[in-house]
Nucleic acid binder design. Structure first.
Lengths: 192, 192
DNA sequence: AAAATCCATTGAACTAGATTAAGAAATGAT
DNA sequence: ATCATTTCTTAATCTAGTTCAATGGATTTT
């Protein structure tokens, strides 16, 4: 069960089998059915979760009830509210499974423990958050500078498998457009 | 000259005078005139800069020459291209002073050095990047969910001093709207 | 102090995308 | 199988924001 996550963290730095064993022993495996909330607004996020199998989304609901999707996570992605997790403050986000999921969970104290025992993991988590920041910046730029159709095509290119697995209106929400307009874009693309 | 930055990093964790001395000794102070490029697309970012005095901006130019401002930095902010700095890869961003600036610079190797000698600084930099991620996420959400006028008012509230100091079209670029439209929003607000 | 450049405003014409409403297709539940 | 719910599409109308162009005010530059 751990080969997958071990291979993944080894992409950042090399670890000895010893170190990976410590890591694996600290992870907790859990499964959740489709449409389960892993986190709701107001709760403190007590996990960083590695997706072994399945698919989830992080989203935000604004004052008017309008939903914005911040992240999709499929196999080999991490999902969490990093700010809430690290500072142990109430979250403004929701995290919900979109398929049955198997996750490997790391609790705050356990993470501390890991970093203390295998400091090299600092690097893994720093890279994670850095990549997240870069991706979010790129998305912000795209949202400002590109029209919806280009953003959609870029999404398909970047996440070819995700777009097969999830309802289309989630993609619209991620792109920051209405589901109706996404439908029109698709019709227009198909016509060619 | 260092009281300012020392007070600032002390907000995250407490440091002994000893530790702060090590930190200060590794910083390089430089001044730059207005409209100087600290970083240009294609270059590898070799600094994380703390703004002692002055004002700078980070921006991106897309394929059509369209400019998007990612960050403003005034006194007590850090400015850098974190991804380029950490991975020593070419940057896609520009960083330019908007006023005469005094900066305290940290080079990649020097930062390594600092983290090795005073590991507690890991926390300072982790908090920095985390705050950056949260801010970028909030901006993305705002850009998707809020109309331009609300974003502008939120900007004024969040950065009351910045809006006094910089040309208005930069604010428009930050908000993701045309300068003309910002002008109209302002006229509408003033009319009330 | 004049010239040159940059900056902000205004208005008219236009467009990308939202909203509303309705029906069709797909998926799930009993 | 069928009923219900969710999802996708299409079309009409509407609006927030863009683009273009013209003007006057500020700043720099010489």
């Amino acid at each position: 069960m751990f080969e997958q996550i071990n291979a993944n963290v080894t992409k950042c730095t090399t670890f000895s089998q010893e170190e990976l064993n410590i890591f694996d022993a600290l992870l907790v495996s859990k499964t959740y059915p489709k449409k389960t909330f892993l986190l709701q607004e107001g709760e403190v996020c007590n996990f960083e979760a590695y997706v072994v199998k399945g698919c989830a989304r992080t989203f935000y609901i604004d004052d008017n009830g309008f939903e914005v999707i911040l992240q999709f996570a499929i196999e080999d992605w991490w999902i969490s509210d990093i700010a809430s997790f690290n500072d142990q403050t109430p979250s403004r986000l929701f995290i919900e499974t979109m398929e049955d999921c198997q996750l490997l969970l790391l609790a705050p104290q356990t993470k501390e423990d890991l970093l203390f025992r295998v400091p090299k993991f600092e690097r893994v988590f720093r890279m994670m958050i850095q990549r997240n920041l870069s991706a979010t910046q790129n998305r912000l730029i795209g949202n400002i500078a590109q029209p919806a159709q280009e953003r959609y095509l870029a999404f398909l290119k970047k996440y070819p498998t995700i777009s097969q697995r999830i309802p289309q209106h989630y993609i619209a929400s991620y792109l920051g457009i209405s589901p109706e307009f996404l439908s029109k874009i698709r019709a227009k693309i198909a016509r060619k």
